[in-house]
Design a binder for these strands. Structure first.
Length: 153
DNA sequence: GCCAACGTTGGC
DNA sequence: GCCAACGTTGGC
């Protein structure tokens, strides 16, 4: 049973184009610093799961591409890098607090903006559309995935 | 830049 | 364990 996820990235940091241009179209998903999002990676993700690649904190936020989970969880090396904005002094290499997975871009899609997602009643329960949601990684129901795939064409 | 809505921290 | 203060996210 395949599972689906939505993963937010600021295109200034890693856009869908950056991911497609990376070796193997694969990037390490660094910088997750929220326990709930981390736990989704740790407890829920499997290699091959579908990913909606979402651009956040940018002029036009929305879904920008399709990707897949390309590895199991690994420690996020940026937590040990004192020069990284994601540095966490309280995390110890023998007991890493933060994890990542590799994400492989499958294809760039048209930009599917938030207002268009909100306009679809079938997507009302999509986690990122719910009020107050700020999670950078959220599960996506198979039915929602199908609707979104259709909208992307 | 604003601000709503969360999450985290730390004193008690 | 409570909760006020503070920090962050992220759309607008």
């Amino acid at each position: 049973m395949p599972q689906y996820w939505l993963m937010k990235s600021e295109p200034d940091e890693v856009s869908i184009d950056d991911a497609l241009a990376a070796p193997g179209a694969t990037v390490a998903w660094t910088g997750v610093r929220n326990y709930q999002a981390r736990n989704f990676m740790r407890d829920g993700m499997k290699v091959g799961d579908g990913v909606l690649f979402y651009h956040s904190s940018c002029p036009e936020p929305g879904i920008a591409g399709i990707a897949r989970v390309a590895s199991g969880i690994k420690p996020d090396p940026t937590q040990f890098d004192a020069k990284s904005p994601y540095y966490d002094a309280k995390s110890k290499p023998e007991d890493p607090r933060w994890l990542l997975v590799d994400v492989q871009a499958v294809r760039k899609t048209r930009l599917l903006p938030l207002p268009e997602l909100r306009a679809r009643p079938e997507l009302a329960e999509l986690v990122i559309l719910r009020k107050g949601n700020r999670l950078s990684i959220t599960p996506v129901e198979p039915a929602h995935w199908k609707v979104i795939e259709k909208m992307l064409g």
